[in-house]
């Protein structure tokens, strides 16, 4: 094992490019998951019966099966029915729709932790249920959810490595190519692991800062 004998001049740009793709993939997937997750939560909590059942079923199904299987279905399964995606788009869809199920759970927890009185008060002031959700419930729920949501972001970042299995050219894929070319699997994957470690530590540091900023002063005491 010797890291110095690796050809860093060609390896470094490849790893950097892979890292950027990983970050891109994570950012788009988590955003997709955010939008779908909020819709699922609202449908689950405030929808009528068929919508409620659909939303619960979605969450249970996606949380109950491996992400890898979901990626396989999107990338290898759908083309049979004429729907074809590039590996990158398939990874975004798989990761995003998977993350949506987890995010929906966190949002639901946050919304339910806000006392019912808030909704009643808003309704008694003449707000419609929809308005009350948008102006009263969600602004509070979104702040409460930040710690749990930060975890989900980190999870999505780490699980974006699974996209390598359907051929998305992210960090893991870059590592595999370099490793196979140099026949130095262990060293290269140690470097890849180190990059993931650094990125995760930096991002979680930032998330903790945001968490502190967005805290609602005194809210803990009221609830």
């Amino acid at each position: 094992m010797n890291f110095l004998t690796l050809d860093w001049k060609t390896i470094f740009p490849q790893l950097l490019k892979g890292t950027l793709t990983t970050l891109q993939l994570t950012a788009i997937a988590i955003s997709l998951g955010f939008v779908v997750g909020i819709l699922l939560t609202l449908g689950w909590l405030y929808g009528n019966k068929p919508i409620r059942i659909f939303c619960r079923g979605y969450v249970d199904l996606f949380r109950g099966t491996p992400l890898l299987l979901q990626l396989f279905i999107v990338y290898y399964g759908l083309p049979r029915y004429g729907i074809r995606f590039s590996p990158f788009v398939a990874a975004i869809l798989g990761l995003g729709l998977n993350s949506a199920a987890y995010q929906a759970e966190y949002f639901r927890g946050a919304i339910q932790s806000i006392s019912q009185g808030q909704m009643l008060a808003a309704r008694s002031l003449g707000m419609s249920e929809f308005k009350a959700i948008i102006h009263i419930i969600l602004p509070q729920a979104l702040r409460i959810v930040i710690p749990a949501w930060s975890n989900e972001l980190i999870y999505t970042l780490k699980y974006s490595s699974v996209a390598y299995m359907i051929g998305t050219t992210e960090l893991m894929f870059a590592g595999k190519i370099i490793a196979a070319k140099n026949f130095r699997f262990f060293e290269v994957f140690l470097v890849v692991a180190f990059i993931y470690l650094i990125v995760v530590l930096i991002i979680s540091h930032f998330l903790r800062m945001i968490e502190k900023r967005a805290k609602i002063p005194g809210l803990q005491m009221i609830s």
Binding site: I154, K158, Y159, S161, V162, Y164, M165, M172, G175, F185, F186, F189, L190, V192, A193, Y196, L197, V200, L201
Partner: peptide, 11 residues
């Protein structure tokens, strides 16, 4: 906890 499961498997 910071290294993805897939990377650990390879390592």
């Amino acid at each position: 906890r910071s290294i993805p499961a897939l990377v650990l498997l390879f390592l």
